[in-house]
Design a protein around this nucleic acid. Sequence first.
RNA 1: GGGGAGAUACCAAAGUGGCCAACUGGGGCAGACUGUAAAUCUGCUGUCGUACGACUUCGGAGGUUCGAAUCCUUCUCUCCCCA
Length: 376
Amino acid sequence: MEFKILHTDPGSQARAGVIRTDHSEIRTPVFMPVGTAGSVKGIHQRDLLNDVNAPIILGNTYHLFLRPGLEIMKEAGGLHRFMNWDRSILTDSGGYQVFSLAANRKLKPEGAWFSSHIDGSRHLFTPESIVDIQRIIGADITMAFDECTPWPCDLKYARESLDLTHQWLKRGLKQFRETEPLYGHNQAFFPIVQGSVFPELRKESAHFVAEQGAVGNAIGGLSVGEPAEEMYAMVDVVNSILPADRPRYLMGVGTPVNILEAISLGVDMFDCVMPTRNGRNGMLFTARGIINIKNRKWINDFTPVDPDGDSFVDRQYSRAYLRHLIISGEMLGAQIASLHNLTFYLWLVRQAFEEISRGTYSTWKSKMIPALSTRL
RNA sequence: GGGGAGAUACCAAAGUGGCCAACUGGGGCAGACUGUAAAUCUGCUGUCGUACGACUUCGGAGGUUCGAAUCCUUCUCUCCCCA
């Protein structure tokens, strides 16, 4: 994996760059659609390629490990071939499941014991096994196994959790260096900064992570319920320490506004379930604001879903029709909303790339933010 | 013509003397959702009021009772079975 910064914004820490993996060229800032179980929910690969035009998507180690399992993944020749996706893939390590499935796991120094949410079976994930699994999945970018701390979280818990995450990082990195890719393309390994909302812990973690010399670095444990201002403050602290010549990935973020703010703070990569999940639940993100398509006021609005949108569904269907589909539980509604939202998110980061390249990012951002948060 | 069952809020459907402004679904209205156990979850849904509460409700009318959606009388309507 290579990363090159092409432009920096004079008014902020924003950068426009390009990541090259063996599968694709990824202009940054980038938004990576989440495809947890080997599928970006509701979006087939052709639309992902054409309308969304995503250069990279996510998969999830925990979910793919449980189903279809490693034997099938190996037999398929890795996730790219399994799902017929020729562009890049990043796999999350399962660190988020340490947080979201907290009731089903037990943390130990050696790793995390999990009860499968599918059949209750017990599994031990270690920093080493998570590397091995991601070798089998074959993602272009693999992630360290961490603990995503909950919020709120007291200092003592955050301190101990951070130490665990750092120990796991060293072990994961060692395993990564001692193993090889299985399918002929290169793989990268990103460490993850933790430290909850404590600036001192975040600084310490950022230094620790920076010392590992990875080709890219991630910031985790944010957007778990804390106020946005605290998240920005943490990102700012961390980015002042993480190497500027490596991509920075803010995990799990976020709203369109969160993304533009974090780009200003020097973040290059994002992922979030919001465009797909909220889309399925009737929320549409547009350049003019947020639409809750389930609201009665759209019942007879026969204008296009999003007249400014890049996706074919934006002009193909009316708001009234989309509302009808979502209200009726028709799966086409979820598909249209997801495709619209993802296309919008990718448009947003591509536009950010253009504005940074032109040196106009900050003015563009201040113009966009009020519009993006408007409730239509 | 004879026999039987039933009428409860937008719909369906509990409730058979006080804990009932009335269970529960659905529908409707609104909200939530941030490295996906989510095509999920939450709230409200007689009227007025922020709320305490007040007022009007369980087919119609009348009655019994301290008290009725619940018991009695009667009327209206619906459904089923036999002719």
